[in-house]
Design a protein around this nucleic acid. Structure first.
Lengths: 208, 208
DNA sequence: GGCAGTTCCTACCGGACTGTAGGAATTTCC
DNA sequence: GGAAATTCCTACAGTCCGGTAGGAACTGCC
């Protein structure tokens, strides 16, 4: 049948399998616009051009939907970051590795702001299960940074263990840069911000 | 009348004037335990040992209640910080001033964790008017830090304006330390954390 | 003790959200 | 073209929340 000029009244028959990614797209959009509290099943359904029961055919409940969205966007970020990392880790100084890692991360963030927004913005006010998932992702990041620092600052073999604090500070600066890029807006490029942070790390962390 | 051994069924007659602070206390407790979304008028009333209409006798609506709570706790923090600041700002180096300011702030935070929790934790998922209020408080803090940096790093007269970024980084490290103290828990004292941050600033910010 | 005024509580309304049942439309397969 | 299976939509139940009306209990004053 030829399409009538009037709008479709019913959504195309796709089934849960093919509908899921479309619903996740809609949920991501709604979340970016309205935050966690505004991401209701109804609003997601509206954004997907579908009705609520269709959403429930794809996701058992609201938590499942948000968890699936979180997992997908987290995966996007991870893939982008890994792709941006230098291929050969045997060349260059540890400081350069920090710089490269930060640049890769911030570039990925700036290219996929919505992914970052949900992965790092859903930890407040979200259902406990979702918040826990976000915390786990962040803990993983902090641990990676801690290992990088360990390689980058061989002088501090002393296990006096200021390293956890420094790793936390580096992670918070990284998150802060991401926030500048995505939320506040800044005229700096990801590479410039990464350079600033890595210089602070290089100059400042040695003295501690 | 003598108190019966059985529990009071009705709350004491206090009136809005004397009831307000008690309700704010209850709201602070509920917020610390259940976060923003869990801070409903009913739960606040329960925590205050009172019914919902009594809460509405003291505060016109939920936003008013949260705004009042925010204002009170922010004031607590400000008073604590000012009290902890050095009396004479003419002695000592700028670096020492940064250290002293950070120590004052983090000490205040660790002594009033609930105040910090609401003042800096209500920005996500809260009603727009509340979130805006929190952002304003944070912007004020960042600006203060920027001015401190300006005094502390006279070498960078160059208005190349990396200063805003550095101020933001310092603010994020400060918040991170606060989070370590209040949320995550750490074995470091406020003074130790302040020292670490100020050393990072001293060593790292000069190179940028 | 008794009365006036204040304060509190029970009971309720309207609205929004989660989640579901059952019928209507579409697609597929022959 | 027509039947069967799949998919979607309308309509609704249940729950919780913000907010309110009106009557019951307490308090203070005489």
């Amino acid at each position: 049948m030829v399409e009538d000029p009037e709008r479709r009244r019913r959504a195309r028959h796709l089934g849960p399998e093919r509908r899921r990614p479309l619903i996740l797209d809609a949920a991501l959009e709604v979340f970016s616009a309205n935050g966690f509290a505004g991401t209701t099943m109804q609003s997601v359904a509206d954004a997907a051009g579908v009705t609520k029961p269709v959403v429930y055919d794809s996701f058992a409940n609201r938590d499942e939907l948000l968890l699936a969205l979180l997992a997908r966007e987290e995966q996007h970020l991870v893939v982008s970051i890994v792709a941006a990392l230098p291929a050969d880790p045997s060349v260059g100084t540890p400081e350069e590795h920090v710089l490269e890692g930060l640049t890769a991360f911030l570039t990925a963030v700036s290219e996929q702001p919505q992914s970052w927004r949900i992965v790092f913005g859903a930890q407040y006010g979200a259902a406990p299960v979702v918040a826990e998932r976000v915390r786990a992702a962040r803990a993983f990041l902090v641990e990676s940074l801690r290992l990088t620092l360990l390689k980058s600052l061989p002088g501090v073999g002393d296990p006096d263990a200021n390293l956890p604090v420094l790793a936390e500070l580096l992670a918070s600066m990284t998150e802060s840069c991401a926030r500048m890029l995505v939320v506040d807006g800044t005229d700096r490029s990801p590479a410039e911000l990464a350079k600033t942070v890595s210089q602070v790390v290089a100059g400042g962390f040695g003295n501690v």
